[in-house]
Design a protein around this nucleic acid. Structure first.
Lengths: 135, 135
DNA sequence: ATTTAATTCGTAATCATTATTATTTACAAA
DNA sequence: TTTGTAAATAATAATGATTACGAATTAAAT
């Protein structure tokens, strides 16, 4: 997903195009890593010294809601990355050093049995380790 | 795992048997639910009004380290349950209402391909939803 | 009973996240 | 272009989970 596509999608829903929002998106479009909220803040502060956590979280959640970003919890902190919406539901290997990810096309839910009577809402499958560059 | 087995295992490693530690273990032995740290605190306070968070977390982490408990993150909070060490590596369905779990014997790592050159350290597979009683 | 290291208590600090209120801004319509 | 208005932001403050720390207590080995 590129910057303009994302901003257009927001516009359709009636959300405004702000410099901060644009800048947040730019950061994600540039790399397919999971990034912690506080690291986003740091990067944005280079352009907007006064930007507040409120702005960061509000936008990260909005973008996740709109399925432009994907969220996960790593080490007790929420992390975000640009969604990989194009190639359907999948999972990730996540490098614990640099945060870079690799898509895993296989979804274990296809193979799970024995949950008759259970109301399944969600699932999480992630693999952690070092990518070839970091290991 | 029962109380005495767990306490014996700690003793072997040189850890002392304290009332607080015993009480924490009792709680976990009684039920196979994931419990939040703060809920453990509440329960312990019934017997030891002055117990501190320090004691709770120190023990929960110790017990997890010693593989007596298992930990996971639910809704931004660390939750703990008695380990299911006896029947080998497996995963869980976790009820988002009551915390009760159901074991999933299938492990997706057996089926994953395409990670040559990646150093795999860990993985997480959990299914969330409502158990038959809560749905 | 004495000793000693482990453990706990009581409290404060930290860190991520959420909430609040006043101000500013995007943008559509006049 | 100006104006009206809802959306968005800034600048805190508040919350809630977790971690840290010094002093006091305790388990258990000798």
């Amino acid at each position: 997903m590129n910057l303009e596509t994302a901003l257009d999608r927001l516009k359709e829903k009636g959300y405004k195009r702000t410099k901060q929002r644009e800048r947040i998106l730019e950061i994600f479009v540039k790399q397919d890593h999971y990034i912690a909220a506080k690291d986003i803040l740091k990067k944005i502060q280079q352009d907007f010294p006064g930007v507040s956590y409120d702005t960061i979280y509000r936008n990260l959640y909005l973008l996740t809601e709109e399925e432009i970003l994907e969220a996960t919890e790593l080490g007790g902190e929420k992390h975000f990355r640009l969604g990989c919406g194009t190639h359907g539901h999948h999972h990730h290997f996540i490098c614990t050093t640099c945060g870079k990810t690799k898509s895993i096309e296989f979804c274990p839910m296809d193979k799970v049995q024995g949950l008759n009577g259970y109301d399944i809402e969600n699932h999480k499958f992630e693999i952690y380790g070092k990518c070839p560059q970091c290991s």
